[in-house]
């Protein structure tokens, strides 16, 4: 059952991820955003299979909830046209894209396979929210605080960038 679910979710993740960057039917960024939602949802499924339930929930809330809405909002605001001006190099870039994909993923997979990872390791960790929270507020409390400052700085930067007149 677990194996079947793993293959379903990882296949969905990879297929939808591919359709985000290279959809053969349309170049519309809205379609890409929709496939990004599917990618992230299936990735949340993989997180559940890895018993990281809290992170799966955060993934769905932050990515599918906030980030995608932001993307769609900006696409709506800019009113981006579907037209791609360059029809010609499209096929060429597709061919070279697939080639590059094969090369890069081949290199990464070769590195993973030859790195001597023990594939017989048993999955042990139960990533409960409680354990995560304890870790977050004891060992990682300083990064946690810095993250708060980072969010504040990010918010201020966005407000400044969005002003009509920069002075």
């Amino acid at each position: 059952m677990q194996e079947l679910l793993f293959y379903i979710f990882s296949g969905l993740t990879l297929l939808c991820g591919f359709l985000v960057v290279a959809n053969p039917f349309t170049r519309n960024p809205v379609t890409s955003a929709m496939f990004l939602v599917l990618t992230i949802a299936s990735m949340a499924g993989l997180f559940v299979l890895l018993h990281a339930f809290f992170l799966a929930a955060v993934q769905v809330m932050v990515y599918a909830g906030a980030v995608i809405v932001l993307f769609l909002f900006v696409i709506m605001l800019l009113d981006v046209r579907e037209v791609e001006k360059h029809q010609h190099p499209q096929i060429l870039s597709g061919v070279f894209g697939l080639l590059g994909l094969l090369v890069i993923s081949g290199m990464l997979i070769k590195a993973i396979v030859s790195s001597g990872i023990d594939n017989t390791l048993q999955p042990q960790l139960e990533g409960t929210t409680k354990a995560l929270g304890i870790k977050l507020f004891t060992d990682y409390v300083l990064p946690f605080e810095i993250m708060g400052v980072l969010l504040l700085v990010g918010m201020m930067g966005v407000v400044l960038l969005s002003k009509k007149k920069l002075r």
Partner: peptide, 14 residues
């Protein structure tokens, strides 16, 4: 997350 699950440490998830 995968490393965290298979090496039994929460740090990856953090």
């Amino acid at each position: 997350v995968a490393f965290s699950r298979f090496t039994n440490t929460v740090d990856g998830q953090v």
